[in-house]
């Protein structure tokens, strides 16, 4: 489904200033892959490549046999509609209600008003936030915000969910709940790529772990542990 082929990225002309280099890995349908590593290891850069936020200096990134690097801006927009994004800082739209935040992602994907009216309450029930539907993000706790972000990410039934440090700002209880939701999403057939620092999460998941250090992949274990 996803294939990184000899990918490297550098942000300056310094020949040694690679953010990531020599990245080769693939992710199959319905996989749950965790990417771990210290800050600056290149995890977020890797995800940005997949979203076409950044273009590789060398190599190619394929999403279902399409070379992401060669996509035109309009095609990038379409690609992103097939990917659900979850961020550490939630990135909800502050002037929109919970309902409107999720509806916006559906509107962007060209869904009808009837579909939106039906799906948004349903997906909010899935993340146990049906009672907060008309609240603004400013009135939600960190855990609730992240659950709204997950609802927004899954509402268009994307092929893949990318979660960039989704539990970084959460307490252990909320962290556990978010991980359970991600597992549930994966169980119903969605590929999940998760970056994290949290050893507990990795051990709890018991799924494939890619370990990065200094911009390179140093381990790729099918049912790995957090080893750093």
């Amino acid at each position: 489904m996803i294939y990184f082929d000899k990918v490297a990225k550098k942000y300056s002309n310094d020949p040694n200033a690679f953010a990531i280099q020599d990245i080769n890995f693939s992710v199959a349908h319905n996989e749950f892959v965790s990417i771990v590593g210290h800050s600056g290891a290149g995890k977020t850069t890797l995800l940005k490549m997949l979203l076409a936020e950044e273009r590789p200096t060398e190599g190619n990134v394929f999403f279902e046999s399409v070379n992401v690097n060669e996509l035109h801006r309009n095609e990038v927009t379409k690609l992103r509609r097939r990917i659900g994004m979850i961020f550490q800082d939630f990135r909800l739209l502050p002037n929109k209600t919970v309902y409107e935040n999720i509806a916006f992602a559906m509107e962007a994907a060209g869904r009808s008003d009837e579909e939106i009216a039906f799906d948004v309450p349903h997906v909010l029930e899935l993340v146990d936030l049906g009672h907060k539907i008309w609240d603004f993000p400013g009135h939600l706790s960190g855990g609730e915000k992240q659950r709204v972000a997950i609802a927004r990410a899954i509402v268009n039934q994307p092929d893949i969910i990318i979660a960039d440090e989704p539990t970084g700002n959460l307490d252990p209880v909320n962290t556990y709940e978010i991980v359970q939701i991600l597992k549930k999403v994966n169980d119903i057939g969605t590929t999940v790529i998760l970056t994290t620092h949290n050893k507990g999460i990795i051990d709890l998941l018991g799924r494939r772990v890619i370990t990065m250090e200094g911009g390179r992949i140093i381990r790729d274990d099918a049912s790995g542990k957090y080893v750093l």
Binding site: R80, R81, L93, F104, A105, R152
Partner: peptide, 12 residues
């Protein structure tokens, strides 16, 4: 806000 809109796949 604009960056988030772009990341969820909204057209220009």
């Amino acid at each position: 806000e604009i960056a988030v809109m772009r990341l969820v796949g909204a057209s220009s």
